[in-house]
Nucleic acid binder design. Structure first.
Lengths: 152, 152
DNA sequence: CGCTAATTGTTAGTGCACTAACCATTAGGA
DNA sequence: TCCTAATGGTTAGTGCACTAACAATTAGCG
């Protein structure tokens, strides 16, 4: 078969494998995260806040590589769930200080069990996780390279 | 730092790297696919149909690892766009025969340029694509292993 | 044959995720 | 000082993606 035709095979599409893998892995987290009462993207927000808080929406957006427009409604849901607080920053009335509530803070203890549970579920060692992480990082960087984007 | 605490670092989360990589790569496809007038998931449906058609919703669901409930509205949009036809299967009134229209079929020519353009954009060789694909495949299989799911 | 069970799609409802457009606030220069 | 530009967030609108509930058809067994 012509190699160019061959490139169009579904099986050979990186974008296909990647999106299925992402959906599958996120799906595998679901039952584990249900114990915490959060969705996967919300879990990522909590991870970011456990490392540092308060943070602004902009800051979270940069850390999680998500659009503020995606975070805005999500943070409101998390506020309703009692996980975080949303208040204007004391030094800047434009910025929103997103902070953990006591409930959000205490959830971290339960979350400590998540990575181990997932490594077991996915049958991955710490080393393999780091290796895959590095590969994903390279992909992410390639997409963010301006040269890849200004072509069109 | 305690290795278990360390596992909770955002940077170390495979799920984080993976979902960002997926969103980033799909995002990188966007401008390329805009020329074809389709979204990324729709492109995957077309790939499947170019390989074999007609196919039922169930068959597409199995091939693309997407829920029928996800495909159903998507296929309607693709029908409105004139890319596919949706008719009951001649031998089974439950099944829907999803087939390409002339327009959908002819789009394949344009699509032949997509994989090459993307490999260039992502600065990946055919070999690297295959390698990443295999890694994703292993992940997908791990999530579909019943042992990983019946625990809860 | 007739009835139950399995198969196949669709609908409803929730939650991301993105772009574009918008509003409010702050900063910085003429 | 004033006023324009930049910054920070929200809203509106579109399109996945999933679960749960449903409707329609077919298959298969007593």
């Amino acid at each position: 078969m012509d190699p160019v035709d061959d490139d169009l095979l579904l099986e050979h599409q990186l974008c296909f494998a990647l999106s299925v893998a992402s959906r599958s892995v996120v799906g595998a987290y679901r039952p584990v995260l249900e114990d915490l009462g959060v969705t996967h993207p919300q879990y990522l927000v909590l991870l970011a806040l456990w490392e540092q808080s308060p943070r602004t929406v902009r800051n979270l957006s940069d850390a999680l590589l998500m659009e503020p427009a995606t975070l805005s409604p999500m943070l409101k849901r998390m506020e309703s769930a009692g996980l975080i607080s949303r208040n204007r920053a004391p030094d800047n009335d434009r910025a929103l200080a997103v902070d953990l509530t006591e409930r959000g803070r205490s959830l971290r203890r339960k979350a400590l069990a998540v990575p181990g549970a997932m490594m077991e579920r996915l049958k991955l060692s710490r080393e393999e996780v780091l290796e895959l992480n590095a590969a994903m990082q390279r992909l992410i960087e390639a997409t963010q390279d301006p040269a890849a984007n200004d072509a069109n």
